[in-house]
């Protein structure tokens, strides 16, 4: 078995696993942000109708927050499917690594086939989730924007827009600045996640093309015509 092939495959699987974990974490964060703003808005609506206090609430904010919650939930479900497959491949790859350390050189053929089997599984997993991974590129981007918008909305105390311009006041909470920094970091990290999904799909699309091209050779070897 060529060590370099094994190492490269192992690195790619590990890196994609990390991106998948990060993706699930951001999906959960988006859902939590959405839920937080929904609760705030519902409390405002309740207070407006039950007390004589002049509490402001915005149906637009409520719609954005509910949408963010739904996007977050959908994002978690689709990410989980991709994560499950890659986790199983990563575990089997870990077992193969242990086997490689403990076995003797004469088992090279067997290990070679085990590696090929995992490569075929990864290709198969990519074919199955091709659409989802492509969607993730856009969902992560949308998620990033939603986290940013929701974070901004949550920190605003007053906002008004007119034809002449707009004015706003941010809340007096001393924790606002650190929370804004964290929120921007999450939004950027989610954007980076989108870029990684794009890179991953570009690399694996290229591999699928290569496989299609080498099918002629396999067909000739099998002396067949599937035509």
């Amino acid at each position: 078995m060529e060590e370099s092939t094994f190492r490269r495959f192992q690195r790619e699987v590990r890196h994609f696993f990390a991106v998948s974990v990060m993706n699930i974490a951001f999906a959960a964060l988006l859902m939590a942000f959405g839920l937080m703003v929904v609760v705030q808005e519902v409390v405002s609506i309740w207070e407006t109708f039950t007390t004589e206090m002049a509490v402001t609430f915005s149906p637009v904010v409520l719609i954005v927050a509910v949408s963010a919650m739904i996007i977050g939930l959908g994002w978690i479900i689709t990410s989980a499917r991709v994560f499950e497959g890659i986790e199983s491949i990563k575990n089997d790859l870990g077992q193969l690594t242990k086997k490689n350390r403990s076995q003797i050189e004469s088992d090279n053929d067997e290990r070679d086939e085990e590696l090929t089997r995992l490569i075929v599984r990864m290709l198969s997993h990519y074919r199955d989730n091709h659409g989802t991974i492509h969607r993730m590129i856009y969902v992560c981007m949308l998620g990033s924007c939603s986290i940013f918008v929701l974070g901004t909305i949550a920190s605003l105390e007053y906002f008004s827009a007119s034809l002449n311009g707009f004015s706003f006041t941010i809340g007096p909470n001393p924790l606002l600045l650190p929370s804004m920094v964290i929120m921007v970091a999450f939004a950027i990290a989610s954007l980076i996640s989108s870029i990684y999904f794009y890179q991953f799909s570009r690399v694996w699309d290229e591999r699928l093309k290569e496989i299609e091209q080498s099918e002629d050779l396999l067909e000739k070897t099998l002396e067949m015509s599937l035509g």
């Binding site: 060529e2 092939t5 490269r8 070679d112 590696l115 075929v120 591999r207 496989i211």
Partner: peptide, 8 residues
Amino acid sequence: LYQKLFDT
């Protein structure tokens, strides 16, 4: 052929 995918 399949392992070559990672050489390029």
